[in-house]
Design a protein around this nucleic acid. Structure first.
Length: 240
DNA sequence: ATTCTCACA
DNA sequence: TGTGAGCA
């Protein structure tokens, strides 16, 4: 019997067959032959998969299924940047079609695996990182806001690239700083448009929304450019 | 009961 | 990739 934290190949397959129905034991072994996986072994030769191994396998399956990546490419990406497999520019396939019903309600955290395809522990970590806020039910159960579903799914995608809740924390603090900046900018914007007093008309509201959208797009471009510049610099340094 | 390797389609 | 034989 394997030690705590390690799973045999059968357990691993059963655990992941929820998300990847066509996963088989032979396929997992095949992936190992191709050099994408290297679990430890018991003295008798049985494969033992650590949490890391399982997560790596999840990433491979995700890349293959949702991203249609050939195994050869996945291998290169995974080996190249131990941890961050970024530099993939395909946008997320929108797996998120929640109806109003789901969106307006709060849902028990235990149902996140079936609802969003992410582990409960992951949702808790997002909460600890400040990305989302959990609510307590009268019975002491943790509830998740339906409005956060899309955000959680997005964070779940990021997880496959080695970007987890810890890394996301910086986006929370960044969002706080930036929202303060935008609010200030909107005040200035309001004074320029409608005199000292700002009326809360519907028209005003739309202008605010539009101004905010523009600011988000523009600052986003700045951010994109700066990041790409830094990355290309890093890469050119590597080739020397 | 399960997994292992290896040969093979 | 997947299957089946024969083992441990």
């Amino acid at each position: 019997m394997p030690d705590a934290g390690y799973l045999t190949i059968g357990k691993v397959v059963k655990r992941l067959q929820g998300q990847y129905p066509d996963l088989s034991i032979s396929k997992v072994r095949y992936l190992e032959d191709e050099g994408l996986l290297n679990p430890s072994r018991t003295p008798s030769g049985y494969r033992l998969y650590s949490q890391k191994d399982v997560h790596r396998l999840e990433t491979i399956l995700y890349l293959q299924k949702n991203r249609f990546m050939p195994l050869s490419v996945i291998k290169q990406q995974l080996d190249g940047g131990e941890g961050h497999v970024s530099l993939v520019q395909t946008p997320c396939p929108n797996v998120g079609e929640d109806d109003e019903e789901v969106l307006q309600k709060f849902h028990p955290i235990d149902r996140m695996p079936e609802l969003l395809g992410v582990p409960v522990s992951f949702v808790r970590q997002l909460s600890e990182a400040g990305v989302i806020q959990l609510r307590e039910s009268p019975h002491g159960r943790s509830l998740v806001d339906g409005k956060d579903f899309q955000l959680i799914r997005t964070c779940g995608e990021l997880r496959h690239f080695g970007i987890g809740p810890k890394n996301l924390r910086q986006y929370v603090t960044a969002a706080n700083r930036e929202s303060a900046m935008f609010e200030q900018a909107l005040v200035v914007f309001a004074k320029k448009g409608g005199g000292v007093e700002m009326e809360r008309t519907e028209e005003n509201r739309q202008q605010f929304g539009q101004a905010l959208s523009e600011m988000l797009a523009l600052t986003g471009q700045v951010r994109d450019t700066l990041i790409r510049r830094q990355i290309s610099k890093t890469f050119s340094e590597m080739e020397e």
